[in-house]
Design a protein around this nucleic acid. Sequence first.
DNA 1: CTGGGGAAGGGGCCC
DNA 2: GGGGCCCCTTCCCCA
Length: 258
Amino acid sequence: MPRSFLVKKYFSNKKPKYSELESQNGPLFAVVPEGYPPAELPMEGGLVLTGYSAGLVWNREAVPVSPATASPAGPLDLSSQSSSGGSSADEDEGRTSDPPSPEHADRFQCAHCGKACSSPSALSRHQLTHCGSAGAALSAAGPAGRSAFHCKHCPKEYTSLGALKMHIRSHTLPCVCTTCGKAFSRPWLLRGHIRTHTGERPFSCPHCSRAFADRSNLRAHLQTHSEVKKYQCATCSRTFSRMSLLHKHGVSGCCPSA
DNA sequence: CTGGGGAAGGGGCCC
DNA sequence: GGGGCCCCTTCCCCA
């Protein structure tokens, strides 16, 4: 289970550019199963994602997945659909931290969302995420119980100074490319950018000769080797390698009954 | 028009 | 607490 996907919460104000998606639910939501309002979809372990999440367009009903084989890591379970190249297995190469073990789930489980943590400290840190801009106002989370650190550049607020500092980087952009001067919030974003100058492509596709500078792009590419792709249209069951393609598909009229 | 690649943003978790 | 890395997601552009 992808860690960040489980616990991501701040959909509503993540990217200003996505305002059009937030303002018009249109075709995109045509693929959300009925009974699952876009703003509240049940997730693994009783998790509920609040707010708009463009990442939830896949249809779990359209592709019945048995509990035994259900992949918590992705929209569709591809673990048994790897005949054309086993993209799922390849995608998971190098990922060793997922999913959390059941015994850990019993030992360090978040009382608010049910998330299992590997240690008490991890649980403590996780519980802090329930406070603040997520609007989850949990009195039991953290000593303050409410956001205490406000960003001076935007309305966001955080429960820890570390989280605030991390966020402020997105405003100050301290990582500057010495080649072109472009600035980034994170060192690894800069490193990824530098690859665009050097041409370095450390992520190779095991099925073809292509290589990529970014792991996520390789992951997307691996979908193209799979017959059954990750994102599925609820209306026609056609699958797509990228959510953006599914979105386009919906916009183009396959799902007019949005 | 569609599918795919490139580049980038940002939150969360682990060490 | 901070750095590094994880992941997902998006936009833009091109074939």
